[in-house]
Simulated assay, not measured.
Amino acid sequence: MLLKAARQPRHPLHHDPAAVRQARIARNLSQAELAKAIGLRSVGHISEIEGGTRNAGPDLLRSIAEALNCGVAALERQKKHQCERCGYGYDEAPNGKVPLHTVLDTDQWCPKGGETRSAA
């Protein structure tokens, strides 16, 4: 009999696993109830999201936030840096530049994208 290897934590994640779990518990929902509320067939999917071994991408994270009646920002993984123009969060870029990005909730490119990051 072969044993299935445990899933390893994924990085980077779009979400903060502990924040998802805490928000679910605060709403008095089980993992099964949350999975059903967002249309997932597997409770394991929620368990893996809360355990950090599965990523909750932007669309799934939005669905989770709606089901838990909280903002997406409360469930997102905190980024190390923010664009000083529009607030876009990002981790360290290898070239020291602000990554190309659109201004949140628009389809317009932020003019700061591609510039060398200011020292904080």
Rank of each mutant, 00 (worst) to 15 (best):
M1F: 06
M1L: 09
R7T: 04
R7Q: 12
R10K: 14
P12F: 01
P12H: 07
P12L: 05
P12E: 08
H14M: 05
H15M: 05
D16Y: 01
D16G: 01
D16F: 02
D16L: 02
V20G: 00
V20F: 00
Q22I: 00
A23E: 04
R24I: 00
R24S: 05
I25P: 00
I25R: 13
A26P: 04
A26R: 08
R27S: 09
R27T: 02
R27F: 04
R27A: 10
L29N: 02
L29H: 05
Q31W: 01
A32R: 13
A32E: 04
L34T: 01
L34K: 00
A35E: 00
L40T: 00
R41T: 04
S42N: 00
V43D: 03
V43S: 01
G44A: 10
G44M: 03
H45K: 06
I46G: 01
E48R: 09
E48H: 12
E48Q: 11
I49R: 07
E50N: 05
G51V: 03
T53H: 07
T53M: 07
R54L: 13
R54I: 01
A56V: 08
A56G: 04
G57I: 05
P58I: 01
R62L: 10
R62S: 12
I64A: 01
A65M: 08
A67L: 03
A67F: 02
A67E: 11
L68C: 04
N69Q: 15
N69G: 08
C70R: 07
C70V: 13
L75M: 07
L75E: 02
E76G: 06
R77L: 06
R77G: 07
R77F: 02
Q78D: 14
Q82C: 14
C83H: 07
E84K: 15
R85M: 08
R85F: 13
G87L: 10
Y88L: 11
Y90V: 12
D91K: 08
A93Q: 15
P94W: 11
N95Q: 13
G96M: 09
V98Q: 07
V98K: 07
P99E: 04
P99L: 08
L100F: 14
T102R: 15
T102K: 15
T102C: 14
T102G: 13
L104F: 12
L104Y: 13
D107T: 13
Q108C: 08
P111H: 06
K112S: 14
G114F: 11
E115N: 07
R117P: 04
R117Q: 09
A119N: 09
A120I: 10
